[in-house]
Amino acid sequence: MMPAALRVEGLSKTYGRLRALEPLTLDIPGGAVFALLGSNGAGKSTFMKSVLTLVRPDSGTALIGGVDSRIPASREHVRYLPEIIRFPGNLTPSVMHGMLLRVRGRGTQADLMERCEQLSCTELANRPFSKMSRGQVQRTALALAFAGEPGMLFLDEPSNGLDPEARIELRTMVREQATRGSTIVINSHLLGEVEAVCGMAAFMKRGAVVASGELSALVRHTGRARIETPSPVEMASFLRRSDLEVFECDHGIEATVSEEAFPGFVALAAGSGIPFTSVEMRRESLEDLFVRLAGGGAA
């Protein structure tokens, strides 16, 4: 694993009496596609905004590439896509990009066109924002965020307003960018999208991180094993003879088996002489994981 691209230590934020972020410590390794998951009001957007100094944290620090995020230079390679932004209606994405280039002091206009091509929105590059639909604005906002070689991307609900085709293009772009070494932090409620692109996640609840790490390590076994077989009835009756609780399902059976007993279960099925195509321990879906870790309502 690469060293932390983002290190957050004791970051906390209070809005009046509302504790939006409990003192929060988190490392996001370089090259990771990291999801922030939680119910509405869990503190995901506040976390992003605190890291980027858009809100003033009460305590704690955020280091981007080892540099305090309060120092503007730390954000030289950072891109941010807010959940809600109204670009000046009279400007076009090209003009907006030109202004961003002046501020960043690097990059070219061609960077934007390259991303617009990937997101199938080249014809929008020179159209005023006021003449675009919500989804078109979101496409061009994504193109602006990915233009150039961002070292770190903060995407707050990036799929908002996108049609299915654009969502597929976004997923492809996120994966490609991660392979180029960018660290991508995504805040999204669309678990399917998250599952498709994110390798790591932090689950937030009432301003605190309740679990974080590799998604594959966070999901639990469900205590059920699944066998795909063309003969589910025969397989079920065979396994029931060994006092196993067995349920028939589409294209196979499921049996209640602990993780420790799983190797014995596989050997038992193999010795049955009944053909089967696969056998696996069933794991939680991301939705199950979300409900277990971050469920329980808004803050």
């Binding site: 980027l52 858009l54 503007p72 950072v78 807010p82 809600i84 932004i85 501020v103």
Partner: peptide, 17 residues
């Protein structure tokens, strides 16, 4: 309120600038 101030400040510029 339009989110533009935050968008600009997420760039490598200070609030003073």
């Amino acid at each position: 309120s339009a989110g533009r101030a935050g968008y600009w400040i997420a760039q490598p510029v200070s609030r003073n600038s």
